[in-house]
Amino acid sequence: MGRYTIRRLLQLIPVLLGTTFLINYMVWQLPGDPFAGRCGQRPCPDSYVSAMRAQFGLDQPILLQYWQFLKNMLSGNLGVDFNQVPVVTQLADAWPITIRLALLAVAIEAVIGISAGVLSGLKRGGFIDNVVTISTLFLLSLPVFVTGFLLQWLLGVQFQIITPTVSDEAPIMELIVPAFVLASLNMAFTARLTRTSIVENRRSDYVRTAIAKGLTNRRVVGVHLLRNSLIPVLTFLGTEVGSLMSGAIITEGIFNIHGIGGLLYRAITGQDYTIVVPIASLLVLVYLVSNLLVDLLYGVLDPRIRYE
């Protein structure tokens, strides 16, 4: 296990390098002058542009820039944005909000998705199964922003149950509906995955054995069937934590939440690339690490998996 972990960590490095390089390259090398629109209506004075270019290393070749970026990241120095505000400060404000939103979303996914999947898988072709199949189909088809605007319009404008936008501190109660929106797609996936897994395992020999042992139906389903069926579901949920954070861009936009997504979006549209690069890299890192953790978790959940 230890050796496997180390090997996986080593494999992570080229992917991380490749991805961050890609982000750096895309962001800095593609056309468009990031400093062009920074001085109001008039073009910026050359002295300002060249000073900025020098500060952010844009006058250096790409590989050197990338090297500088890596050195900075490794030393924990995320730099400043074009307005000279430290990126770390901005992250510190936004990060907790996004984490809260993402965790809440995972909780919703897990609770609703798994229960719906189990119920529909146990009674295949029954009423609940049909309801779950159809509602997941709709959730999978509705783009997140449609779900978002729809709920905002219905609950916020028509029925006025929630405030349409979230306040700056983003308390948990106000985040519930946005988290539901963020979770909607994965919730549908979770429900379906759980259902498939339950259906497959339900006819398996070990479940038959459990019944033959004279266990109560509750125990057969709740212990034997569920424990096996949830392995792929939990790994799916784990993998998705990473992508939820970046998926939050749209949800945060709709509900005006000041999290990472909103920060990133404003930075991109404002061409403030010094924020884009470290945040995007961080999101990728979170994504890759959560994938690795999930793989290791898989080994814990399923004793048959052996790492060599």
Partner: peptide, 15 residues
């Protein structure tokens, strides 16, 4: 490794 929306935003935002 580049999450979808993020990747699209970065590429389109620059191209």
């Amino acid at each position: 490794g580049v999450p979808y929306v993020l990747g699209a935003i970065i590429i389109l935002g620059t191209v």
